[in-house]
Structure formats: structure tokens, C-alpha cells
Design a protein around this nucleic acid. Structure first.
Lengths: 247, 247
DNA sequence: TGGGAATGTTGATGTGGATCAAACCAATTC
DNA sequence: GAATTGGTTTGATCCACATCAACATTCCCA
């Protein structure tokens, strides 16, 4: 009985899915575009896709065709080795771009999995190429997005290659906090969307180590932890954990 | 007395520096371009630059302006943490592209240092943008290059996050071997251009561990090591080190 | 051509984080 | 409201790699 009504509501929402009135337009592809250019972008991004918690936007080996802008929700990207070991290579939230790994070999090289019910904007890659040949600003922005992904990964390499467990966790929390802040959320309190195991996988640690280190940070008065809820009590203290030679 | 003659030789060589008759054109930017398009590329890449061993092409924080295609020689890229710890983020040889980390923030975020006397082609980034708006093939190729850099870094993250020392070294050697092969050099014998310390830094290990592991591989008959000279004696064996649960 | 600085090897010992194991807790589900 | 399930915490022990140290080798360049 309610079904038709619900469907209509969704239709209306879909109509409004255009980039030009998206609340994320200041941190997504539309940055710096004029109204005119935005209209063109609207024609390119015509699909939104809901992704339920646990489902994936794309999987490794899958044919590449589109990029995805996270509209809402939270994702992880993971790599799987032949022997089954897998590793989280990133966590992604609203405004982040997914799928750029697929361009090089025309197939995806990792899995993008939703950690909560989420929504992405589907950006057909061919259209993006076309449009970015036309719109200099869009081209520039797209290149910047890719470049920043490279730099982000540099950071992770640094973390994995030269930091101790406490430093990794501190860097992780500070990074999350900073990203939440830039999206208008509280810098000092947030809910983790991922498990200790996923954090560990991302940071090259075991989940027990993650848990222990959280506990230690709590004892030291740096953070408050209650399951997935994190309060950052002493962000300067956390920063000083980074680049501290030893315990 | 010889100087003028030498200078003229260099001039001639400089004239021939065009992409269209570069021996690397099949693994560098020119891939897939028609003669016509190649001519345009030639106009873009008009500078070659010699880089002496130990010198850098660019340094972290430096203003970004150009990309660099390695023409000959060998480079490492490194990141430095505030506290001085530094980490090698990659090794780069002929045909590789350097500097893409700089696009995002309009300044470089790592150092690119020559490990032997080398030569790079300077690609002014503005020109590349321009030209790739014109030449679809070039645009595609450039995007692929960036994407592959992302995928390469994914691989390093996997290595740093989930592999043990022996696996890291094995993966490293196989990767080098494969890259030499694709450049027409021997897959089974090559000279390392970097020190044990640099290898260790790249792999998240100490130089002693690198040295010991090389020795172990040698004892096991997998490789022959003599200082910087490496012979791969049993590449299948090396592959089987990867993804082996334990010693 | 020799002497000193880098670089590399190998051994002995130490330790941070992994592993193994056991509770504990919160959220569902029956 | 008992039972199940997925996630988290905490303790005891272990081990892969780091660290410290001594020596060997190679590379420079004075």
C-alpha cells in the first residue's frame, strides 16, 4: 500500500541527484566549475547507486568502466593475495573518489566494500575523459584527485614502513579526525565504521595490538574509547606520539 | 681542443632527443601515437636533463611544474618525516614517469634522487595538459600511467603490511627482474643500483636483514649474490617463497 | 697507490608485536 | 530472557626482526 508512494519519493530524490545541487559539490568533482560547466557535469553523472553494508561497488578483476564518488556512507578498499591473505588499502568517506586503480589495466585491482549502507555517484569514465578534454578546470581537478591518491598512498607506505604500532594508531586517528572535521563533523568525537581487525589490516597490525594500543592511549588520557566510539581528549598528545623515538 | 667537438656532438644528440625517435617510445608517453601526433609531442618535450649520481630531479616542497620521464639511469624517490626518518618509496628506471605526486598540491611531496648518472626528459605539465586535451590517445595514456602508479603503490602497501622479510625480498627481486626483462635486459642477471640500506628502507626492513636474507637465498640456491651483482638461479623457487606461510 | 670512508657480512642478544587462549560485551534472534 | 554471534579486551608466551658489535670488502680520490 505504501510502496508506490515510497517509489515516488525515491524518484524525486533521484531527480535531485545532480552535481549542481549536491551538498558535496565543494569537495567533489564540481570544485571550481561555473554554473554552465556544472550543467554539463550533471549530464555526465546521471546515476546514483545505493550500496548496502557489506556489498561492494566493484571487485578486483572486474572490468573497469566507471569511477565512483562516495555520496554518503563509508567504504574500505581491499586487496587479496593469492594465498588468501588480504589487506585493507584505504577507508573512504563522502567526497572521496573510488575506482581510479582500474584505469591502468582496464580492470579493477581491488575491492570496494561498503562498511555501512552507502550511496555512490557513478561516473562513466569515458564521459569523464570526454568532458575533461572540454573543461580545463575539470581536467585539472581530476588530475589533482589522482595525484592526491598517490600522495595518500605514499603516506601509508611511510606509516607501514617506518612507524611503530603506537605511531600508526595515532596517525590513523588524527587522519580520521581531520577528515571528519573537513566534512563538518566533530574533530574530537566520532564513531569508527570499521572493526579492530580492519584497522589492523590497514595499519599492518593484528587486531589485538590495535585493541591494546587503544587501551594504552586511554590510560594515558589521550583518547576515550568505548567500542566504536572514539573521543579525542588530547590531540596534541596524540601528535606527540608521532615521531617519538620509543615508548 | 676537443671541447668544441664534444659540444657539437652533444648538440646533435640534443636534436635527436625528440620522442619520435626515442628508443623508449614504446614504453613512454608516445605509446600508440601516430606520426602526426608524435610530432606534436616532440614540441612538448624539448628538454633533456642530465642528473648526476646523488643529485635530485626535484625535492619535497619544491614548486611543481613538470613531470620527468626517465630516459636512462636509475632513481629512487624518498619521503622524509619531520623527525628525520626517511623512507624510499620507489625505484625508477628508463621509461618510468616521475613527479606525479606534485600535481595535487602544486608542489612535490618527495625527493627524486639519481642512483647513477642519469638522464630525464622534462615534460612541462601545462603543455601535457594542453596536448592531452587535444590528443585523446595521449590523455588516455597519461591517465593509465597515473593509475598504474596507484596500483604499484597498492602492491607496496600489501608487501609492507602483510609479508614477512623473505617474501618482501623475493617480491622485490622478482619485480626488478620483470622490469629489466621488459626493457630487454637479462631477467636472470642484473646489478643492483641501490644499497642494502635503500632496499631495506623500501621494504620496511633493516639493512642487516636484507643482507642476511640475500645470504639465505644464496644458501638455498635461489640466487647468486656478489655485492651488487644478482643472479636469479631459481625463479620458480623465489616465487614459491612468496605466499609461503612460514620458513 | 694507499688509506679512509662507505658499504656489506655475520654473530650475539634484545624486544615489539604476533600468537594463542580465555573471557567479556553488545546486539540479535528465537 | 536464554542462546547465539560477531566483535573486543586482556593475559601469557613466543619469535621474527631489530639492535649492537666486530670485521671484511669495495670504492674513492688525495
Amino acid at each position: 500500500m505504501n510502496a508506490p508512494k515510497l517509489a515516488r519519493v525515491i524518484d524525486i530524490r533521484a531527480l535531485k541527484s545532480a552535481c549542481s545541487n549536491c551538498s558535496l559539490r565543494e569537495m567533489c568533482l564540481p570544485i571550481g566549475l561555473s554554473q554552465d560547466e556544472l550543467d554539463k557535469l550533471d549530464q555526465m553523472v546521471y546515476t546514483r547507486k545505493r550500496v548496502k553494508r557489506g556489498d561492494s561497488v566493484y571487485r578486483s578483476e572486474e572490468k573497469f568502466g566507471s569511477l565512483y564518488a562516495v555520496r554518503s556512507g563509508f567504504f574500505k578498499t581491499t586487496l587479496v593475495m593469492e594465498d588468501g591473505r588480504d589487506q585493507v588499502t584505504g577507508f573512504h568517506m563522502a567526497g572521496d573518489m573510488l575506482g581510479m586503480d582500474g584505469i591502468g589495466a582496464d580492470q579493477h585491482s581491488c575491492n570496494a566494500v561498503a562498511l555501512e549502507d552507502s550511496e555512490v555517484c557513478v561516473i562513466p569514465y569515458g564521459r569523464l575523459e570526454e568532458l575533461s578534454r572540454e573543461l580545463h578546470v575539470l581536467q585539472q581537478h581530476f588530475h589533482k584527485v589522482m595525484s592526491r591518491e598517490i600522495v595518500r598512498e605514499h603516506g601509508v607506505m611511510l606509516l607501514l614502513g617506518s612507524m611503530r604500532a603506537e605511531e600508526r594508531l595515532a596517525a590513523f586517528l588524527l587522519n580520521l579526525s581531520q577528515r571528519f572535521t573537513s566534512r563538518g563533523y566533530s574533530a574530537s568525537e566520532f564513531n569508527l565504521r570499521m572493526t579492530r581487525e580492519e584497522i589492523g589490516s590497514y595499519l599492518g597490525l593484528k587486531l589485538e595490538t590495535v585493541s591494546r594500543t587503544f587501551s594504552k592511549f586511554q590510560e594515558d588520557g589521550l583518547i576515550g574509547v568505548q567500542q566504536k566510539n572514539i573521543r579525542i581528549l588530547d590531540s596534541a598528545g596524540l601528535k606527540s606520539v608521532l615521531g617519538r623515538d620509543s615508548a
